[in-house]
Amino acid sequence: MQTLTPEVMLEVNNLKMHFPIRKGFRQRVVGHVKAVDDVSFAVRRGETLGLVGESGCGKTTIGRCIMRAYDPTAGAILYCNAKNEQVDLAALKSSDLKPYRRELRMIFQDPYSSLNPRMTVLDIVGEPLKVHGVARGAELEDRVANLLKRVGLRPEYMRRYPHAFSGGQRQRIGIARALALDPRIVVADEAVSALDVSVQAQILNLLEDLQAELNLTYLFISHDLSVVEYVADRVAVMYVGKIVELAETTALFAQPKHPYTEALLSAVPKPDPTMRSKRIVLEGDVADPANPPRGCYFHPRCRYAEDRCKTETPALRAVGQVGNLSHFAACHRAEELNLRGVVS
């Protein structure tokens, strides 16, 4: 097992998650959906790594593999725990995962289905504390009250049920639950996507404050590029199960190196009528992850595609450097193309 450099907290190496497609009476496997197909990246201590892509690109699956909600098909998830020991989360048995369930936590997208409607806020936020034998009785109530205060809810509400709260407040409860065990990494899967525009900003600010206060590392998964640009230090762009570009946020948004990132950026409607730009409208649909095209998965929709893009699969490689951070892109023509970013 390779050792992690000190600034890296989590490293994903060649991660694959293939879901079998079953058909017929005997449920025979007739193929695989390659939801995550050979993905490698590192999450640095204290940073927010944004993971963007369209639906079905595998970003949520990566989050769930790291949380070991799924058992990855192949690959390693190297994690450096609080005692500075290195483990491969992908190789652990489910029974050995319990200590890591305290250090890696998740915030869910849907503030409605992620809270059990039959449990009080005290039970929901207190559940991880009870399961790990951290606190009980009056001490549990104290700790839950503190957590609620920390996420901006009144502790008096802990005996209420989730239906008493609005979407934004429910998301705060979900955040309190994620923080209950003093985690080190928080995977936020579309944490603000289901919220109203005016409430999104409240939750984004809260997440930012908590990160500074508790020294958290975030993996922020979202389809919303403007939100990711706002919260993330570095951004990884995914297309059909692969990372196509990974770079420091400003660099990626100002000078994208992959044609897909360029198209994605130009497609986002900007809330300023004076910036009505010419959109790059991609032809066709996203490739089918069960049956992706040969070569670069993006080539059928790419306006810069050459012959070799149809046959050779490009590797994710460093194509530039900003400070001490490399700019990675998986495009044969990354260096020669001069792609349009968003003007600031």
Binding site: Q169, V197, S198, A201, Q202, L204, E208, F253, P271, G341
Partner: peptide, 19 residues
């Protein structure tokens, strides 16, 4: 209150209070 694309972090967002 909305984050805007291409306007590199100019401090915090200014949310609307309450719901």
């Amino acid at each position: 209150s909305i984050p805007r694309l291409g306007q590199i972090k100019q401090g915090r967002l200014d949310p609307i209070q309450g719901a």
